[in-house]
Design a binder for these strands. Sequence first.
DNA 1: GCAAAAGTGTTATTCTTACACCCATGA
DNA 2: TCATGGGTGTAAGAATAACACTTTTGC
Lengths: 270, 270
Amino acid sequence: MSDPLPPAGAVPEDSSHAHAAVQLAVSTVILAMRREEKDEPHSLWLPLVRRLREPFKGMFALPGGPLSPELSLEMSAASTLERATGLVSGYLEQLYAFGRVHRLPGPEDEYDEVAPPSERVVSVVYWASIPATDVANTRVHENIRWMRADDLPRLAFDHNEIVDYALYRLKNKVEYSRIAHSFLGEEFTLAELREVYEAILQRPLDPANFRRQIAASKSIIDTGKRVEGTRHRPPRLFRYDHTQAFADQGPLGMYRAAAHDAAMRHDENP
Amino acid sequence: MSDPLPPAGAVPEDSSHAHAAVQLAVSTVILAMRREEKDEPHSLWLPLVRRLREPFKGMFALPGGPLSPELSLEMSAASTLERATGLVSGYLEQLYAFGRVHRLPGPEDEYDEVAPPSERVVSVVYWASIPATDVANTRVHENIRWMRADDLPRLAFDHNEIVDYALYRLKNKVEYSRIAHSFLGEEFTLAELREVYEAILQRPLDPANFRRQIAASKSIIDTGKRVEGTRHRPPRLFRYDHTQAFADQGPLGMYRAAAHDAAMRHDENP
DNA sequence: GCAAAAGTGTTATTCTTACACCCATGA
DNA sequence: TCATGGGTGTAAGAATAACACTTTTGC
């Protein structure tokens, strides 16, 4: 611990009388299952926005912007989601608040000239998923480009690390939660659900064991319908069981209620 | 999604040109193993600070304060930890960023008069643990009081919910990480380590199975020493194996490096 | 010796994993 | 009929959990 501490004897408390020298921004890692070719497996993609200003002008960055005083953090992220995709549905969850004094990628001195240290920005980053059924309806804009999450170019600021962290968190979360369903539409086959797991975990799963594990979790319901027209046995269609509890954010549900009602279709909180 | 969205057609990007209308604060949930009576089991306690100003004047709140522009979020939390306890060691990790427009406990209208909605504060909350060997050396101050985490009075703002969430996160984390060691000193017995687990998980653990599970994880090393003077068989003293990797924050280690070097003794990151 | 906690052994149960094999459809 | 993925069976191995039992100290 070095210098900038208050005089000894001072007691810290949650004073609200700060001089606002730090900017607050909200960005969102928006993930969706996509593929380029018809017979290629799906993988995770995300929309990025080309920067029109310095620093990092011309490079791609996560969609986001400054926090409006009248919006909650989550509402702000939902609003970014809507602006970047045109969609109002999807799962949304806080990822992390990034707030180093200089938030730049790689060795810092390499960038000291392009980003003036005077601008201090703390970014609260969310991550979102959008259902595969909505992917085709996403907004098209010349400054928005969808890219594969596992094959990104160098992004502005520290956004590469942020995406990596989002993918890491998702990888963990898919193991103990039902988050994978949020990447699919209302009805889906087990093979589609497994493809989501495989794209997130980046490894193949045994179809037989996967089926039994999902069945044991009781998270899905057989609709009785089947998909026909495949060149093999027609797979059953399932839907997510919304009545089942979902181990997720714990006692934090209340903080998500507002944006939930407005923007969530796949409510997965207790 | 309702009204306060920018005009359609606007593309979101990570602009740093916000008008700073939102205050940024950092608070810390500081947890330690304590007990009141000598033969009572340990439980989780935390230091709280009595508020000297409105709103919630006289009530207790989490230690914290506004973010200084020259401090990272984690440095700010470490500084709070130092001011509230007098200690510079301990584990420190970001918990969540709370930023509803009105952050008040319970039904909001009950409080609309005491906390003017004009003041918008976003709090980035950290949680910390301090080793049991340092607990006796914590700072004493008339406005700081340690309380049992599972038996708190009504705190200022939404700080009860924040503490509950910290305890929930800790409960999860103790199962898959080695975080429990951060509540103990350099050397400890298996019974002491088990007491940490039991205090966090709020349930008794089988000593025999606990011993084998910890042994299987290879996270501890037998020092060869024993504790004598007990009225039973002298238990072995172990120490934490710092060379073992620790599944923790994933690719986020880099963001913790700075405060780490300054304030961390129990480095548990990859 | 006795109480108390340290520490070991044993067994039943459940979960995980690998893989063999049958089923139902379109071409 | 054959290729293809849907779907079921089975058995080995690992992790979990419950609890009996032995060990070593202080009193």
